[in-house]
Structure formats: C-alpha cells, structure tokens
C-alpha cells in the first residue's frame, strides 16, 4: 500500500458522492453521530454491535463479516471508503478488518468526520439506498494480528509501540481522559515498548502528517524499521490508527495490531509491567 492507495481526501469523496462503485462507510462507537447526519450515501457500521462477537471477546468471524457487508450492500469489487469520529480511530480499526478479511480496495477518508465537519461540508439524515449484495470474505490474514503470547515474546526482541497518551503509558491514567478512570486491570505498559501516542501521527484536524514527518516520528522514538513491529493501545482501535500509518502509509512490512491491548495485557497474571515514563528492560 501507499498513501495514495490507502487515503482519499475530502475533495475526492465530494467528487465521488454519486459513484455507485464507491461505498462510503461511517464507523463510530457513538452511532447517534451517524443518525444525526452523515455523508450522503454512507452506510453505517457500529463498532460494537456489528464488529464484535456478542458473547466472547473477539471480533466477528468470516461468516459474520460476510453477512454484515452483504446486508449493507457492499460488493467485493467496490471501493470502500471508511470514515468516522475520534480522528478515524474506529474507521482505521474497521479498515484493519477489511484488510484482515482480504478486501482489495479499501481506503480511509483523511481527517474523517472531523475534517469533513470543520470544512462545513454537507451532512444528510437521508438513509442510503443500496441493494443487498453477496459478499465473500477471505480467510483472516494472520500476518496483521498479534496475540498475547506473541506480544510477551516480543519484549526486548521486536518493536513494541504503545500508542496511548503519556499518562496512560506511565500508569497515571487507565483510560483516555474522556472516560472514567476506575478499571480492573493494572496500570503501566509492556517493558521495552516505546510510547508514541497515535495523536502524534495526526494534525489537529485529524488528517495524517506528511510521510517524512511520520518516518522521523517513529525513527526518533526508537523504532527500528529493520525489525517487526507490534502496536497496541487500550482496546486496539487507536493502535489500528498507528498500524495504518506504519503498514499502509509508510509501507512497513510485518506490522501487527495487538487488539487485546492493555485491557488484556494489564489483566494477565505473571507478565512483566513497567510503571513510569521509562520503557524499562526485558529482564
């Protein structure tokens, strides 16, 4: 992938609003955002209802993903353009799903919903009109997803990138600051992980920074581009944003998103945890 293949601008979306082969998909946690107004023709995906298994902690399987996209009228050959609130966190997370399940042409709207709103571009409450499709997903691409044992084995061996805010990394906060802080898991970070907050990859309006700025952001923070990389956050959506930057924009091979993230790691028995601003050592 590359920036050109993975990202589209608001102007590009504006020019393709009536293109039937381009499917806009808004992905939010707070779906009232979509209901109060969305980009013309956009279908809705609810981060929790549509993308998470209703019982166990995992995301939807191949069949569930196929049923979801068929119901929304997304075809295998369509260009899917994802956007959403929270600086595209959940849109990036959904983008990662589309890649996991092998969709060939998927992109992010640079800046997401925020950029669109700050530009005072038009939103509508009209429901989209797409006929159902028969979507076929591929098998999950295991090269994009990290599990807990792999993360523990990566301590001191691979790049671990903690994309949460500095206070969450250090253990002074357990969740982003728009959420209550009482949580079950321990506070801190995985030893040897670099703290490179997802927000450093984005401008205030939610668009991604330039390639050379992104490259030096990670290199200066100690990411060795010769090694494999695992990104994590609290539940895996902010790290999907960073996965997007590293794997799709900067075209780094071997970058995985650890969607178990801190809510899993911080609850594991017996694993090492570092509290404070220093990365800590492997032993």
């Amino acid at each position: 992938m590359s920036r050109e293949a993975a990202l589209v601008t608001a102007d590009w979306v504006q020019d393709h609003l009536d293109d039937d082969n381009v499917v806009l998909v808004e992905v939010d946690e707070d779906t009232t955002a979509y209901d109060k107004g969305h980009i013309k023709g956009a279908v809705k995906i609810d981060w929790k209802q549509d993308l998470q298994d209703p019982v166990r902690r995992d995301f939807v399987n191949k069949q569930q993903f196929e049923a979801l996209l068929s119901e929304r009228g997304v075809g295998n050959d369509d260009t899917v353009v994802l956007y959403g609130g929270n600086n595209n966190w959940f849109a990036a997370y959904a983008y990662w799903y589309f890649k996991l399940y092998g969709h060939s042409d998927v992109r992010l709207l640079d800046g997401g919903r925020k950029k669109w709103e700050l530009d005072s571009r038009e939103l509508t409450e009209d429901a989209p009109n797409r006929s159902k499709s028969s979507y076929t997903a591929g098998e999950q691409d295991a090269s994009l997803r990290a599990y807990r044992d792999e993360v523990v084995a990566a301590i001191g061996a691979q790049n671990l990138v903690d994309v949460r805010s500095p206070d969450e990394y250090a253990g002074r906060l357990l969740a982003p600051a728009h959420l209550p802080q009482e949580q079950a898991q321990r506070a801190g970070h995985i030893p040897t992980a670099s703290n490179i907050p997802w927000s450093k990859a984005a401008n205030d309006d939610g668009t991604f920074r330039a390639d050379d700025e992104l490259q030096s952001l990670y290199a200066d923070a100690g990411v060795d581009f010769g090694k494999d990389t695992i990104a994590y956050c609290r539940i895996g959506e902010r790290s999907a944003h960073t996965w997007f930057v590293l794997h799709e924009i900067l075209e780094q091979p071997n970058v995985k998103n650890y969607d178990g993230s801190w809510t899993e790691y911080g609850s594991l028995v017996g694993v090492p945890v570092v509290v404070g601003d220093e990365a800590g050592s492997a032993s």
Binding site: G85, N87, D167, L173, A177, H178, Q181, K200
Partner: peptide, 24 residues
Amino acid sequence: HDKDGEFTAEMPTSDAGEFRFFAA
C-alpha cells in the same frame, strides 16, 4: 492537552455545547 502540550483526549460537544473529561 497535558502539561507538556501532549494530546490526551478529544470529544465533540453536545447540542448544549457541553464537554466533560476525566483527567489526572
């Protein structure tokens, strides 16, 4: 933004213009 200027959280305001953070 925290004391070093680092971004920490963001939210859209409600229809009443309201916002709320749980900070340290």
